[in-house]
Design a protein around this nucleic acid. Structure first.
Lengths: 251, 251
DNA sequence: GAGTGGTCTAGACCACGAG
DNA sequence: TCGTGGTCTAGACCACTCA
């Protein structure tokens, strides 16, 4: 915190950010046009746009081409609970979480076949899931299941896509091995537009691979959440055997 | 993938990206100056800089003020192993991972006192850790421990900051409860400069809270990794009791 | 068609790095 | 001091939305 950057765009961004935080600019409201703001702050439009770009990446503002810049509604935080638990029950209950599912038949390509440990061009079923909260999309999932394990009818009905996973798990032997790989990256253009986030903002990407007792991979899920409103939480009750060395089975 | 954006900056970024991937621009090499590139692609400097901005956010290029734009060395991936395991042993062994530690005495403020479940202004010891791989910094950690639990001498010597955590854990009762909260966000300006990443790139932020059997919080660690070269992996061997409902103890 | 944001230009001037 | 990137300007022109 030992730094200040007195560039104009930061000053403008700070001012607008404060106005939003203070509630002088209310959620959902449209900002003055970029031309007006540029005139008001006495900067060029390029500089002003640069300031808005900062706010957009921080999630304060949503830009809509041809309409204007809008103050983002502060959305409920999403909590992804790792370790095979479901999405935060609070969120699921409170927010009329809905999902639109589109299924497709695909064949394993390089990356997928490695994840699922199946040969190339092996038949899979793809489930494309979009989590909504009211109008706002807030999560995106691509789930791949070996074709012979996919009872498509079961899944299409699921109101929660996490529910879909649970029902899948229930069809398999009781013991599952779960591997969740979490990473942070910028969204693809496609993800940015479907999640309605800035392509300059960060997303939380979780790759979850589920295997049954036999080691067979039952499903691979590629989950994407907007970084500015999602966390993944993992809790462990851990027993330390003795000092230092313990069996480390991470790759 | 059903989209193409034929804007000039994307075309230029694609061209340069291909040249890097193909090895025509080698790692560590300096690109031609922005003025030269702008002339070469017949665009204005602003447009060219915008193209370089994309590559920088993607981690292909590092900009250094006054020196030039450099092709980024592809760095070894960092794997953070969750659930109380150590940093990927491969990486630790292979890469002469070093850490510079700076300790400080601080007092719990709002956020920290909540994490550590201690009263406000409670005395803490802060460990600032910076993970290096050769010259390149690749992780950043701020670890907070209640003052009376912090044997500073032990920690300062630790070659790995994860080692520091392990030794701490070993001083406590054998059973620990771990809660790791993972999120994706843009780096602060400070983080961006110390990790030498673009402030437009994403970071993986992990907040890890460790408690002993009595429920007392033993340490809180705020970890930050560059998103373009770090993953966090969590593996679970899970036993499903029976269909559906299982005890969900995530908050 | 009027109003909005999106892209781009051809400069100017400033700040940093290295000799 | 010179060459580099960083910030900013005052426009032009295009693409989208909506009446």
């Amino acid at each position: 915190m030992t730094w200040s950057v007195p560039t104009r765009r930061h000053a403008i961004a700070n001012d607008l950010r404060n106005q939003i935080s203070a509630g002088r600019l209310k959620a959902g409201e449209r900002l003055p046009s970029e031309a007006h703001l540029a005139a008001h702050y006495m900067v060029s439009t390029a500089t002003l746009r640069s300031a808005l770009g900062l706010l957009e990446a921080e999630g304060y503002v949503e830009k809509i081409h041809g309409k204007g810049n809008f103050v983002r509604r502060p959305l409920r935080r999403i909590t992804y609970a790792g370790g095979g638990r479901m999405l935060d029950t609070q969120a699921a209950v409170n927010s009329a979480l809905r999902v639109t599912v589109r299924t497709a038949k695909v064949r394993a390509s390089g990356h997928l076949s490695a994840l699922l440990k199946v040969p190339n061009r092996s038949p899979l079923t793809e489930f494309l899931c979009l989590g909504h909260e009211g109008e706002e999309p807030h999560s995106l999932a691509r789930i791949y299941v070996p074709r012979d394990l996919a009872p498509a009818t079961v899944l299409v009905e699921s109101p929660l896509f996490e529910g879909a996973l649970a029902s899948l798990a229930d069809l398999r032997p009781p013991r599952v091995e779960l591997r969740e790989t979490v990473s942070a990256r910028l969204p693809t253009l496609e993800e940015a537009s479907t999640l309605r986030i800035s392509s300059a903002s960060a997303v939380l990407a979780i790759t979850r691979v589920t295997a049954d007792t036999t080691g067979r991979v039952v499903e691979a899920a590629l989950l994407v959440f907007p970084g500015d409103r999602a966390d993944a939480v993992f809790t462990t009750h851990h027993t330390v055997n003795e000092r230092g060395r313990r069996d480390d089975n991470a790759r």
